[in-house]
């Protein structure tokens, strides 16, 4: 867990050091989009440190229809 935390913090620091000076020169629309992008990033970082499956049933039916021999 400590390794994951250090990894996320280092990458976040590197990203912000690179992006913030450039964001200062950008439009407010771009800055808002950048801010919105941080939300899924923070959520996923939390999931990492601390929908597709809905389609698995119909996909299995397609496979069974194509190849009935496969169990």
């Amino acid at each position: 867990m400590l390794g994951k935390l250090i990894c996320v913090l280092l990458l976040s620091a590197g990203m912000l050091i690179y992006d913030i000076p450039r964001l200062k020169k950008s439009s407010s629309h771009d800055r808002i989009v950048y801010g919105i992008m941080m939300l899924p990033l923070l959520y996923l970082a939390f999931v990492f440190i601390a929908i597709f499956n809905l389609l698995s049933k119909p996909a299995e039916q397609i496979v069974h229809w194509l190849n009935p021999q496969q169990s």
Partner: peptide
């Protein structure tokens, strides 16, 4: 998203993909 320049988003998007 009608952005002026998408280069700002390269690192956040890559980071999201990494976390995925």
């Amino acid at each position: 998203l009608k952005l002026d320049d998408e280069r700002y988003l390269v690192f956040p998007v890559s980071f999201i993909c990494l976390l995925l």
